[in-house]
């Protein structure tokens, strides 16, 4: 029999992606041994908290969590506060970089999303550091339709002489829906995951932020195109494969005529 965690991930790849949060909760109650693996490897839509100190919203995921508290990237403080001595925060060097990265991705967020929320979290590793870049935006362009976008970019950076090796895993959770009397209900939701690795030159810690920024920017451009293709191309094509608007006898006749013309030309 397959490894239960592989089966759980296979199941989550099949069930309605909109229910991923409740499905993860069900899986954990059915098999508590899977708790840690599931929380680590399954991306769920990001939740939002307010940093009491800076009054700014920040995003929450497993990487800035300690028990029931989340670390604000703006103040470096835990919300709600953790007990004295609890809660791991980055070293001074990594925290400095984290502040810079948060400023940089705040600009990125404004340029590409024109709204929404961003948060970057970094942590120390033995041979470098790692981190995640989170972006979230929701829209409701008219009363009948709505959409939400969650980006979760997780990377690690291994320091080498004058360069660093970066490994990035990106997930975008995209939910779109409309509901009107004329059309009825339509929900188009899901997530896509992509990975990339790259070696880039590093002069100082500023280079790290720029390198990661470029990687995330390229990745999101690629993924946006991919999502567009799958959501509005592939899904629509499958509907057309299930049911044909023009009568099939007509379509088949047209095809036969076309075939005849082609063979006529090549003769």
């Amino acid at each position: 029999m397959a490894d239960p965690i592989d089966s759980a991930l296979d199941l989550l790849r099949r069930l309605n992606p909109k229910d991923v949060k409740s499905n993860v909760d069900h899986l954990i109650s059915l098999n508590p041994d899977l708790t840690e693996d599931l929380l680590e490897s399954v991306d769920i839509p990001l939740t939002v908290k307010k940093c009491p100190k800076t009054k700014r919203d920040f995003l929450c995921c497993d990487y800035n969590r300690d028990g029931d508290s989340w670390r604000s990237p703006w103040s470096n403080e835990w919300v709600p506060p953790v007990d004295e001595g609890e809660g791991v925060v980055p070293s001074d060097r990594i925290r400095k970089m984290e502040i810079r990265a948060n400023e940089a991705f705040d600009v990125y967020r404004e340029l590409y999303f024109e709204g929404g929320i961003s948060s970057v979290y970094l942590w120390d590793m033995d041979d470098g550091f790692a981190g995640c870049i989170l972006l979230k935006k929701a829209v409701s362009p008219n009363p009948q339709s709505s959409g939400s976008w969650d980006s979760i970019h997780v990377f690690d950076a291994q320091d080498r002489a004058r360069t660093a090796h970066y490994k990035l895993t990106s997930t975008v959770i995209l939910s779109l829906g409309t509901d009107s009397d004329a059309l009825g209900g339509m929900d188009l939701s899901g997530n896509m995951v992509r990975q990339v690795e790259s070696d880039m030159a590093v002069d100082d810690d500023t280079s790290h932020v720029a390198n990661i920024g470029k990687m995330v920017e390229d990745m999101e451009l690629k993924m946006r195109n991919l999502l567009q293709e799958v959501y509005f191309g592939k899904a629509k094509d499958v509907v057309g494969d299930l049911r044909s608007i023009p009568p099939l006898s007509q379509t088949n006749r047209d095809r036969a005529t076309q075939k005849e013309m082609i063979s006529g030309i090549s003769r």
């Binding site: 362009p141 709505s146 779109l176 509005f232 899904a235």
Partner: peptide, 23 residues
């Protein structure tokens, strides 16, 4: 219905999707 659905793909792409993130 199928014609309306095909149009809805277009309006979601041009509407909500574009409003979420610029290319």
């Amino acid at each position: 219905y199928q014609e309306d659905l095909n149009k809805a793909f277009g309006s979601l792409s041009e509407g909500a999707f574009k409003a979420l993130r610029r290319q």
